[in-house]
């Protein structure tokens, strides 16, 4: 017999090799690199925890950490809620449905960089059309990403505009995967539309919602391009997320070690949060089996 206990691993080998080369090795390199420092003339040395010590005494780092967490605390539930609402909206059969669905996923086709640039023009205080409109209807011009108070909210809005349609697709697929008969059973059991949503749809959407929340969190922790393009972390550090700090450390300050240390911290936080999210959204029927 050719088969042995190694056979399954043989079949998995290509996938495992891919995982190793493309995921685990870069992570190891990043974590390893966070323990190094480079002299001005390019000599690499082992620096132990120096990079981390530096960060922990850096007020910019702490303020950036706070902003990153705040940003994610708001944007992830928000995007999930908006995507869910949109999915429910286009799940109902109605005339012209394809049009609305297309409209909602259209922002996906615009690259993050370009959408940031477009929003920059759209929201601009002097040349942007939105402020003209706001003045016209009497609300008055808003500074948006140019003010310390509104910048983070503006970025959250842009990211949600871009992301909600994408996440909607997953939730829509989830909605379609709920058998129609379960809804019918609930109708016969006497459930109102709200009760069907609350007791049937919502709990049965746990898995797609968990996926969206976790994937979205992973993406939003690495949120970068609009910060880089629109605010450069400002005003007064209001949008200086950790990814931006990592970028700046590497490409402006030529401090790769510190950049990798920030990335490593980011990764650690992300792992913790994703585990918590999975816990939170684990279906009760799975806990027991």
């Amino acid at each position: 017999m050719i088969s042995s206990r190694w056979t399954p691993y043989l079949f998995l080998a290509p996938a495992l090799a891919g995982l190793l080369v493309f995921k685990l090795v870069p992570i190891a390199v990043a974590v390893g690199g966070s323990l190094t420092g480079m002299s001005l003339m390019g000599d690499l040395r082992f620096a132990g925890l120096e990079n981390f010590e530096y960060l922990f005494t850096d007020p910019e780092f702490w303020s950036s950490l706070k902003i990153t967490l705040l940003f994610n605390l708001i944007i992830n539930p928000l995007q999930l809620a908006v995507a869910f609402a949109l999915a429910l909206l286009v799940f109902q059969p109605m005339p012209g449905l394809w049009f609305f669905r297309t409209l909602l996923v259209l922002p996906m086709a615009v690259s993050t960089g370009i959408s940031a640039v477009l929003f920059g023009l759209f929201l601009d205080g002097n040349l942007g059309p939105l402020n003209g409109f706001l003045e016209w209807i009497g609300i008055g011009a808003q500074p948006f990403h140019r003010s310390q108070e509104q910048a983070l909210a503006t970025l959250i809005g842009i990211a949600t505009w871009k992301g909600a349609g994408y996440w909607m697709l997953f939730l829509l697929a989830g909605l379609y995967s709920i058998p129609a008969s379960v809804h019918e059973a609930a109708r016969i059991d006497g459930a109102s539309a709200w009760q069907r949503f609350r007791y049937v749809t919502l709990p049965m959407m746990r898995k797609p919602m968990a996926f969206v929340l976790v994937a979205d969190t992973a993406i939003n922790f690495l949120f970068f391009a609009p910060v880089y393009i629109l605010t450069s972390g400002g005003p007064s550090g209001a949008t200086s997320v950790l990814m931006f700090q990592a970028y700046r450390a590497a490409f402006t300050f030529s401090d790769i070690g510190r950049s990798l240390a920030i990335s490593t911290i980011l990764l650690a936080i992300l792992v913790v949060i994703v585990v918590l999210e999975f816990r939170l959204l684990r279906a009760p029927e799975e806990e027991r089996s």
């Binding site: 008969s181 379960v182 609930a186 109708r187 016969i188 059991d189 709990p203 746990r206």
Partner: peptide
């Protein structure tokens, strides 16, 4: 009238049980 007001019960071909509820909760749902 909607199903709710007809007082009928139905057993479906694929059973249409609520997968997230225990047997007890499935039966007691209505």
């Amino acid at each position: 009238l909607p199903p709710k007001q007809r007082d009928v019960a139905m057993v479906f071909q694929n059973y249409a049980l609520y997968p997230h509820l225990t047997v007890r909760a499935n039966m007691g749902f209505s």
